[in-house]
Design a protein around this nucleic acid. Structure first.
Length: 739
DNA sequence: GCGTATAACGCATGT
DNA sequence: CACATGCGTTAT
């Protein structure tokens, strides 16, 4: 299959939608008012209740009407089917019986129902379909029989409508409906019997959103809803299935029974729920036989609720400041564009790398004037690159490359981190990323809309031309991270695993020299490496040298060739490979670790992380040299990067469990940046929480029940601040971890 | 012939 | 070197 995963076409859609929106607003801005157009939608603050007429107006606007009629159709189909129990048609006695029955049933199988008439089990999923209900199958017979499209005798299927009753129409019965649905959800969250849901995180998010604030995020802690999407990804992280039917056909023994044209929708849903149950059984069995059960049960299953809680928290953003910087960067870009045209002696599209290529290399022929330097080529086609590395080589020959470099910096910040984030904030002053558990082969998690993990670390300096009396120029710093602000009375707290990957490399290789560095915690690691490398004393090492050493070490570990290394380092290939040799000579065991990992991968076809995460690499025995070498690098990288991911996820889970079982602590996880956790903490609890976080994370050196015992200590740096852009170090006392 | 959806590519950001 | 996501252009 192709390497596609879930909603792979969605980003494209949103991009285009956003683009259209931007264009539209741009047009109105320049042509009519000169200012960005205000959103026409009525204000509806976070705490405000939606009143009835407002709801109607929204529904009647645009395409919603279509969806609603479809939804009404599906809801009607579901609730009019004799096999489905509609919670809205049950009397109090029946509800009691239903809750009791749910508590006693052998297994619960669930799926969300969307307003567009689909469920989580349908192949095509829109970007963020609106939820209208929840189907719960209570299953009692656990022996396998033929696939059903109708209920087994003792089973029960109930439909819970998830639609808030407008305040103006609320009656006693409606309130009790929501109460009943909430009780059912609570039962699912705390159920001792197995519960299964494809994309369980979405279910948890829906529950948290629908019953906010009476359902606290702490209440999803410790819930264990099985998720076949996660299981399937764990079994083969390189090839995640794009949708439920694909996952099913890949893992079910029998070929999937394609629903006949005439099959009723309700029958399809019922057979889907039964197949979901058996698919989960099958996947659990496979996980066990592949040695992945502990990883699934102790880590990934718990991650689902951690991510749901994180996703259900919105981060406050200084929207007005974002809008101001958007305009500022816009004018700056116009200036740079003109500069570029002047320097080139022609008009061209500055954002187009192909047009820039013809200007630089066909018109100005800059490549002929630097034959001593080697200019990078594009990856796929053999063309002259216009990448940063190439432009840096050319910048002394002509003014244009420098202008382009600055233009690109500004453009990137504006498009992705200013306008991009603004478009993620539809009529609110806050954002919440979507966190994906199954999109990274290494076991890391990823974020989108916005991608919180890729916000620039360093602020950008802009010199603004200004013709006012006094000064002629003004320097403004633009820092996207500084736009993220904690709520009133709260503080951001960041906890960073220091050099996790290098520490894990020391552990995995047992290299005595590398171990020594970490057991003597006096001097900074990369400073030490830099001094060793450059042959100067530790005091002589500049912060630039240190950053350099950092990049080089990781490059060497992950198998960078001398070409690539010399590119990073900016020195000759000769010197690069000399450093490479000296590094691997100094840390001999690192080299044997690399060779051992590759050899093991050749033999078994897969490699394992420290907690047993698995990645198979089919190309490891490929006759194609390039593919084989790539697989070897991937194998080494996976063991280190995957192990680091294991540790960071474990930290998230442990801290989540500690906070959610505490009556006083209120800190919330806001984001994960791979080896860094960002929390929002009540001002009064910052110090206490800082100590707790640090000691919890550092205690992960030893995880008894998973047999993890690192040969190096873990170090965690904690900092806090009133914006994400201005964090200052904290030095919390070590707290004894309580159990 | 012209405008729109899609895929591939190049270039950015982060760890 | 590895792993991600996002924006924009260009060819189909």
């Amino acid at each position: 299959m192709s390497g596609m995963h879930e909603d792979s076409c969605a980003p494209e859609q949103t991009r285009q939608i956003r683009q259209r929106a931007r264009n539209a607003s741009k047009q109105t801005a320049s042509a009519v008012t000169g200012k960005p157009r205000k959103h026409k939608q009525a204000k509806c603050g976070p705490g405000q209740e939606i009143n009835g007429p407002e709801l109607f107006r929204e529904a009647a606007d645009g395409n919603e009407l279509q969806n609603q009629s479809k939804a009404g159709c599906l809801t009607a189909t579901l609730t009019s089917d004799p096999r489905v129990r509609d919670s809205w048609k049950m009397n109090p006695d029946e509800k009691m019986q239903m809750l009791e029955r749910a508590g006693k049933t052998k297994a619960l199988v669930l799926t969300l129902v969307y307003r567009d008439g689909t469920t989580q089990l349908d192949p095509e999923q829109k970007l963020t379909p609106e939820v209208c209900g929840l189907l719960v199958l209570m299953k009692n017979k656990l022996d396998r029989s033929a696939p059903e499209d109708s209920l087994e005798p003792n089973d029960c299927l109930v439909y819970l409508k998830l639609e808030h009753t407008p305040a103006w129409a609320q009656q006693h019965t409606h309130q009790s409906q929501e109460l009943f649905t909430k009780d059912m959800l609570l039962l699912v969250l705390s159920s001792s019997q197995p519960a299964v849901c494809y994309k369980a995180k979405d279910l948890l998010c829906t529950a948290l959103q629908f019953y906010r604030p009476e359902l606290s995020w702490k209440q999803v802690a410790g819930c264990r809803i099985h998720d076949p999407q996660v299981s399937g990804w764990l079994l083969d992280p390189a090839n995640p299935s794009s949708c439920y039917p694909e996952l099913l056909s890949r893992h079910s023994k029998r070929p999937r029974t394609i629903p006949a044209m005439g099959t009723k929708k309700v029958s399809q849903v019922i057979s889907g729920l039964y197949s979901l149950y058996w698919l989960n059984m099958e996947l659990c069995f496979k996980l066990q036989s592949q040695g992945l059960w502990r990883l699934y049960s102790d880590m990934e299953l718990n991650m689902i609720s951690v991510l749901a809680a994180m996703e259900s928290h919105r981060i406050h953003v200084d929207k007005e400041a974002l809008k101001r910087t958007s305009e500022l960067l816009g004018t700056k870009m116009k200036q740079l564009e003109q500069d570029a045209h002047r320097a080139a002696g022609q008009i061209f599209l500055v954002t187009s790398s192909t047009q820039l290529r013809t200007v630089l290399f066909e018109k100005l022929c800059l490549h002929e004037r630097c034959e001593n330097k080697k200019l990078p080529k594009t990856v796929n086609k053999q063309q002259q690159s216009t990448s940063e590395a190439a432009l840096l080589q050319l910048q002394d020959l002509h003014p244009l490359p420098k202008i382009i470099l600055e233009y690109r910096q500004v453009h990137k910040i504006k498009s992705t981190f200013v306008d991009g984030i603004l478009s993620c904030m539809a009529s609110k002053n806050s954002v919440s990323s979507t966190w994906n558990q199954t999109s990274a082969v290494t076991g890391r998690i990823s974020a989108k809309h916005p991608n919180f993990q890729a916000l620039p670390r360093q602020p950008l300096q802009i010199t603004k031309k200004q013709y006012v009396q006094g000064k002629e120029e003004e320097v403004v710093t633009v820092h996207p991270r500084a736009m993220f602000i904690p709520h009133d009375g709260w503080t951001f707290l960041s906890a960073d695993f220091c050099q996790v990957e290098l520490r894990l490399l020391a552990h995995l290789s047992s290299d005595p020299e590398l171990l020594r560095i970490f057991i003597n915690p006096q001097v900074d690691v990369f400073t030490m490496l830099a001094s060793q490398w450059k042959g100067v004393s530790e005091g002589e090492v500049t912060s630039e040298d240190r950053e350099h050493a950092k990049r080089i070490v990781y490059s060497v570990v992950y198998g960078a060739g001398r070409e690539r290394l010399s590119g990073i380092l900016g020195v000759s290939a000769e010197q690069a490979s000399r450093f490479q040799d000296s590094f691997l000579q100094t840390y001999k065991e690192v080299q044997t670790f690399i060779q051992r990992t590759i050899q093991q991968c050749h033999k078994q076809g897969y490699v394992l992380s420290i907690m047993g995460r698995r990645r198979s690499l089919p190309n490891i025995n490929s006759p194609d040299w390039g593919l084989r070498m790539q697989a070897e690098r991937q194998a080494v990288n996976f063991v280190v990067q995957g192990s680091a991911a294991d540790l960071c996820k474990m930290a998230m889970i442990k801290i989540f469990n500690l906070v959610s079982s505490s009556s006083s602590l209120s800190a919330r996880l806001v984001a994960q940046l791979h080896d860094e956790l960002l929390y929002e903490v009540e001002d009064s609890q910052v110090e206490q929480f800082a100590g707790l976080v640090r000691s919890t994370m550092e205690s992960l050196q030893h995880i008894d029940h998973l047999g993890v015992h690192l040969k190096v200590p873990l170090r965690v740096a904690v900092s806090s601040g009133k914006s994400w852009g201005s964090m200052s170090d904290l030095n919390p006392p070590t707290v004894s971890p309580s159990h």
